[in-house]
Design a protein around this nucleic acid. Structure first.
Lengths: 170, 170
DNA sequence: ATACTACGTTCTATTTTAGAACTGTCAATA
DNA sequence: TATTGACAGTTCTAAAATAGAACGTAGTAT
């Protein structure tokens, strides 16, 4: 499968993966949320090759996640700023960080703590239902095809059936 | 940078990216949450090459995200089931889907809708603070080094300073 | 025997990435 | 005036990852 094909898939996950689903894009976005904005800063803090950095920044700009903004004339220099679309990636970044905090820390503990300015406390992110406010788990969610769906795949139907008959899990 | 180096980084995001930060792993996990469990089912529904599928499943098992469970003897056959560690990825998957729903849908609308069994309504996921329950935004969060941190990078310090002096954004 | 199912492995060609060097513009310094 | 340095990329070659197809294996069914 080509990257471009991902964008066309009738699946919001696949389309998002087309934007941020590679090793470097997520790390670049982490730096953006840590207020890194300039080419050489990204390069220095990530150790990414300049070649790939240029490529990924272009891609993120093309998708409207970053904006390339001039910060000086002569010589003209640009920095890369998160757009609203980019800022909206924050829940993704935070849930990735949180999973790492729970499942990937070593004996020394978390590399980073997060303080919520509103309440002044160190927090963890919690994902809740927009309708009832309860925390969400995979098992409490049922999926339906939406208006943008393509006819449901036979393999999924078969798996659903088997899962219903079978005992436990996922 | 090598993939193995990512696991060692003092950053929960980088360590999580080492597990799920490639095109296929996230798509495989999507299928897991849609109750796909068997090799040929993954292959059929994703169009991934058998080579890479075998490789990624091994990796996800190695990281403890999936469990390889026999479902029949003679010939011995296995299926791949999400562990608790894997189920805990749900907020990541849901926030990725939600961003796609908001920013990547075409005119036909969402490919998929989610129903919360607890309240019976179609919902969107919302990320809130574990301490005060308010929705989280990037600007309302302040980061601190944690016990597992390495000394803060000069480039980050520089960027922070510049960001404080400067006017708006991120 | 032959075909079929399920789960991989192996092979070659293509694409992507790593790593280093190079380019162009301008400002500051010697 | 010549040199150095900062910044933002581009270009090059070698190494690694991926795509696509074929092959292997172990059992059941015809």
């Amino acid at each position: 499968m080509k990257w471009d094909a991902l964008e066309e898939e009738p699946c919001s996950l696949a389309r998002t993966v087309a934007v941020i689903g590679d090793r470097w894009s997520l790390l670049i976005l982490r730096e953006c949320f840590l207020r890194i904005r300039r080419f050489d800063e990204f390069q220095a803090s990530l150790g990414i090759t300049r070649h790939l950095l240029a490529d990924r920044l272009k891609k993120l700009v093309r998708f409207g996640v970053l904006r390339r903004v001039p910060y000086q004339e002569s010589p003209k220099r640009y920095e890369y700023i998160l757009t609203q679309k980019g800022l909206d990636l924050y829940p993704i970044i935070m849930s990735i960080v949180h999973w790492g905090n729970i499942h990937m820390v070593d004996s020394r503990g978390r590399p980073m703590l997060h303080e919520h300015k509103n309440c002044g406390k160190m927090f963890d992110p919690v994902m809740v239902c927009s309708e009832c406010g309860e925390p969400l788990t995979a098992k409490a969610v049922h999926v339906h095809p939406g208006p943008g769906a393509r006819q449901s795949s036979p393999v999924h139907a078969k798996a659903q059936e088997r899962a219903k008959r079978g005992a436990e899990s996922t």
